[in-house]
Design a protein around this nucleic acid. Structure first.
Lengths: 204, 204
DNA sequence: ACCTGAACACCGTTCAAGT
DNA sequence: ACCTGAACACCGTTCAAGT
């Protein structure tokens, strides 16, 4: 077969297949991706520059699958909405997060999300370099929780012995997804309260 | 050559070489590691179960290279010390962080660090599942900032146009390492203030 | 423009063979 | 016990050849 009348590959289908692979196996490879969409490995390069671009396309896809709307409301509400949406995006595809940490964000949708964060923070009263620091903090926070979803048992694998406080904390926790949820809500409250507190001490 | 009288490989040297590779190139491979310590690729498996164990050994190494001491002081001081130490460990080897996110923590030193966190949080007054949620939050926060070090330009690559608030925030920031530092300090204050605030509202 | 198959330079891991 | 070299099954990317 040579060039078909209708392209065999659409970027949309490519990204969908790649996301399926990640959801199922926690990773994807070009050979497997090619097999899944029934095409040769090398033909993928006619549509995409390589593995990195596919990863970046997946980032864009999951963000746009988790739309958010900021209307009216104060900065706190806006911030909650944005962080929650970001986190929900990864909650739907937990195994994608680890693959994206090595990559520079280029996706337009994601940049727009950060722009909205910046606007919210300015309206809150943060100025100068604090805006960037606050974005950084929120980003670290959200990314960390996204990663937490991918590896619910990272730290929490019961250490066999000698860590009593940790063991006791563990015994009080429910199933992994429940405590992931609880931790996120807890963390979001801390983040918001911390921002309020810093705002107070800065303004005064 | 067959078996030498003195082993050619020590785990210590192995980990040191691997860490050098990561510091220089952002990654390591067994072929490159073998070449660096002047040994054949397969002989590495006589000392270590594989790539994963090497990664885990690197985690332990950098944590023990960044010792901390908690004595006297309140929970807040202890918490600051621990988080700062954790973050410093990765600050010295920024490119290691992304390689570790896919892995389960097994290293004893790191588990001890979390145990200390749990103790500090209990002495602060957190109870039940909140202890785990707080650890999770601190963990997300610290991990996120460690990753930030590895990719200082993640979000901050000047978006060509259409993101005014983000661009303005960027224009107010200094060089990458400075703003990384500022962001961490800012984030740590938010974390501490947020914990205080939650503690107040829970206790009352 | 879009596909194919072959080729290239890399991986991590295993294993028989040596002493 | 510890090393070697060869082998295996995988990668991502390139490229000439086809239509």
């Amino acid at each position: 077969m040579a060039r078909p009348l209708v392209p065999l590959i659409s970027i949309d289908a490519l990204v969908t297949a790649a996301l399926e692979l990640v959801d199922e196996a926690g990773d994807f490879s070009l050979p497997k991706l090619a097999k899944r969409i029934g095409v040769s490995q090398s033909s993928i390069y006619n549509h995409v520059s390589g593995r990195e671009e596919i990863l970046e396309l997946m980032r864009g896809r999951i963000i746009s699958e988790s739309p958010y709307e900021i209307r009216g409301g104060d900065w706190e509400a806006a911030l909650r909405t944005i962080v929650r949406s970001y986190r929900d995006a990864f909650a739907r595809h937990p195994r994608l997060a680890p693959l994206l940490v090595l990559q520079t964000v280029q996706d337009h949708q994601v940049l727009a999300l950060y722009e909205n964060l910046a606007v919210a923070l300015e309206s809150a009263g943060f100025r100068g370099r604090d805006v960037l620091s606050a974005i950084s903090t929120i980003d670290s926070f959200a990314l960390g929780f996204a990663l937490d979803l991918a590896a619910p048992d990272v730290v929490w694998a019961p250490p066999s012995e000698g860590f009593p406080a940790l063991a006791s904390a563990l015994s009080n926790a429910g199933p992994a997804d429940e405590r992931g949820e609880a931790a996120f809500e807890f963390g979001l409250e801390i983040l918001i309260a911390g921002l309020h507190s810093l705002l107070r001490s800065t303004v005064l």
